[in-house]
Computed example of a mutant assay.
Amino acid sequence: MRNRRDDGRDVLVVTGAGGMGTAVARRLGSGRKLVLADASRGQLDRVVEELSAAGFTVRGVPTDVSDRASVEALAEVAAGEGRVTAVVHTAGVAAATASARTIFEVDLLGTAHVIDAFEPLAGHGTSMVCVSSMAGHYAPVDREHERALATAPTDELLGLDCVRAVGDDAQAAYMLSKRANHVRVQAAALAWNQRGARINTISPGVVATAMSQAEIDSDPDGRMMKMLDACGAGRAGTPEEIAEAAAFLTGPHSLFVTGTDLLVDGGQAAWIRWHMRHP
């Protein structure tokens, strides 16, 4: 028996109404019922109004991903709209604008909450994409701590030794959180596979969003942009390019892709590994 809101259209859930989330919503939302979540009610209302005016069927749900109950409420709303076939988690904060504690609560714990809340809704063909970061590939974390980040119960994550050891270093918190996103998704892939569903991460490099601009503004030496020039990209990425990657990972051409990370960074990570001169 169909829910009264279920008109047969698939449901797309997007967390984060910033540059990437809005681009994903526009790229994937046509013909679907879109459930958009953000912690900022003002930002959420603005984007919902814009998307509605553009013809999308969209419902905004204020959501704090660091709060398990808030994310579970979001999942309940999404389930009430119909069959959830795609979840793209873009909500996050950065080292330039947030404390280490907030980064861990939003980027680390928040991602785990989203994975946990939507796994019970995953069915045949469902695909989740969690937006991580290229920075996660460079977190100095050993195998033992990676295993803990991947498999510890969600409510124990903030108490892990490797998390507590970071202290107030926001950049280190960001890198560790993004690495945790990678390994958490890898570990979750088995359960999602058993449901006929898939789960992956995307790791953007520098992308032209307000969050990235804050990072650039906090970098007086222009190191980020110099690295983009050095690696040959010569520019930042666009939110639309991240949306295209999400479209691939939630679409019919990636049905054998799960439990992995897709770097979308203009070749910066490859340059860092093979060509960057290290002190």
Score class of each variant (00 low, 15 high):
residue 112 A to K: 04
residue 155 D to E: 08
residue 183 V to A: 05
residue 146 E to S: 13
residue 89 H to T: 01
residue 85 T to C: 02
residue 102 T to L: 15
residue 134 M to V: 12
residue 183 V to I: 06
residue 146 E to N: 15
residue 186 Q to H: 11
residue 146 E to I: 13
residue 109 L to T: 08
residue 82 G to D: 02
residue 110 G to E: 00
residue 111 T to W: 07
residue 119 E to D: 13
residue 125 G to R: 11
residue 144 E to G: 11
residue 93 V to G: 01
residue 101 R to Q: 14
residue 145 H to E: 13
residue 87 V to L: 06
residue 146 E to D: 14
residue 98 A to Y: 00
residue 153 P to N: 08
residue 189 A to S: 10
residue 105 E to Y: 07
residue 128 M to T: 06
residue 174 Y to P: 02
residue 88 V to N: 01
residue 127 S to R: 03
residue 190 L to R: 12
residue 91 A to S: 07
residue 156 E to S: 10
residue 138 Y to K: 15
residue 119 E to T: 14
residue 103 I to H: 12
residue 119 E to R: 13
residue 103 I to L: 15
residue 155 D to R: 06
residue 131 V to C: 09
residue 193 N to H: 13
residue 162 C to A: 14
residue 169 D to I: 05
residue 185 V to T: 06
residue 138 Y to H: 15
residue 169 D to M: 05
residue 127 S to K: 06
residue 101 R to V: 11
residue 147 R to N: 15
residue 194 Q to G: 15
residue 135 A to W: 11
residue 185 V to E: 00
residue 170 A to C: 06
residue 99 S to G: 13
residue 187 A to L: 14
residue 191 A to N: 07
residue 161 D to H: 10
residue 160 L to V: 08
residue 90 T to S: 05
residue 130 C to G: 14
residue 85 T to W: 01
residue 94 A to N: 10
residue 183 V to H: 00
residue 177 S to V: 04
residue 175 M to V: 15
residue 132 S to K: 09
residue 92 G to N: 03
